[in-house]
Design a protein around this nucleic acid. Structure first.
Length: 256
DNA sequence: CTGGGGAAGGGGCCC
DNA sequence: AGGGCCCCTTCCCCA
């Protein structure tokens, strides 16, 4: 399971997840002002999973210092494993899947892009911030106490990570034109383009314009004879991974 | 049925 | 540390 689309299609009545609880909250009941999107929505305590918490940790101002007693990024504390391990292996493996932009192989020689390496899983990062976030979201979560989301089974080691996740439930960024809500401001920006018709990303081959850069990137594949995604069986190439998956699922004949 | 476009979600990285 | 952007990925719909 590569990803869980926690807030997917909640505006479709037929496929709407159980967000009755969320919809009763002030975040979504607020005026539909996309330009007043609260960028740092701190969920009220009742939003967070009560049973899954370690109460003294939750809203304590000294929380982070308690999580990182020796300062963030200390390899020793990461490898210490003093706290009881949590079964977040599924989450970790999920996160590692399909990340072609991930760090280089741990086996390779140290390089500029590998200056910061996770002591637990050996993943390397070019910046300390990258390593720090990785540890907070994944590896440290296996050895530290965690913050659990009330709405789903996800657990995070830091309040910041949990806050970011909870936004996918609270959807603080609301479009004032249609009322649709999003977890992040830039998602809302992209959505607003569907109203304004703005398409800032143009194809240099056919001048077709797109509102989303990723969609342009996918479109560019259609201009290429040899496309990015190739079937290992028949060598046929596809412009999108989803098309390759379809091809494989329907049974590659091995020809063509 | 297949390919392509539109829309959206989430993690990683940079500032 | 947090915000914003980038990138990848997925799902849905339509021609």
């Amino acid at each position: 399971m590569p990803r869980s689309f926690l807030v997917k299609k909640h505006f479709s009545a037929s496929k709407k997840p159980n967000y009755s609880e969320l919809e009763s909250q002030t975040v979504l009941a607020a005026p539909l002002l996309y330009d007043t999107c609260p960028l740092s929505v701190i969920p009220p305590p009742e939003v967070l999973g009560p049973g899954a918490y370690y109460p003294p940790l939750v809203w304590d101002a000294g929380l982070l210092s308690s999580l990182f007693p020796a300062g963030p990024g200390t390899e020793a504390e990461a490898a210490g494993g003093a706290a009881p391990a949590l079964d977040l292996t599924a989450l970790s493996s999920e996160e590692d899947e399909g990340k072609s932009s991930g760090p280089p192989s741990p086996a390779s020689a140290p390089a500029a892009a590998e200056r910061f390496r996770c002591a637990q899983c050996a993943k390397a990062y070019s910046t300390f911030a990258g390593l720090s976030k990785h540890k907070q979201l994944h590896c440290d979560a296996q050895t530290r106490k965690s913050f659990s989301c009330k709405y789903c089974e996800k657990e995070y080691v830091s309040l910041g990570a949990l806050k970011m996740h909870i936004r996918s439930h609270t959807l603080p960024c609301v479009c004032k034109m249609c009322g649709k809500a999003f977890s992040r401001p830039w998602l809302l920006q992209g959505h607003i383009r569907t109203h304004t018709g703005e398409k800032p990303f143009s194809c240099t081959h056919c001048n077709r314009a797109f509102a989303d850069r990723s969609n342009l990137r996918a479109h560019l594949q259609t201009h290429s004879d040899v496309k990015k995604y190739q079937c290992k069986t028949c060598s046929r190439t596809f412009s999108r991974m989803s098309l390759l998956h379809k091809h494989e699922e329907t049974g590659c004949s091995g020809t063509r």
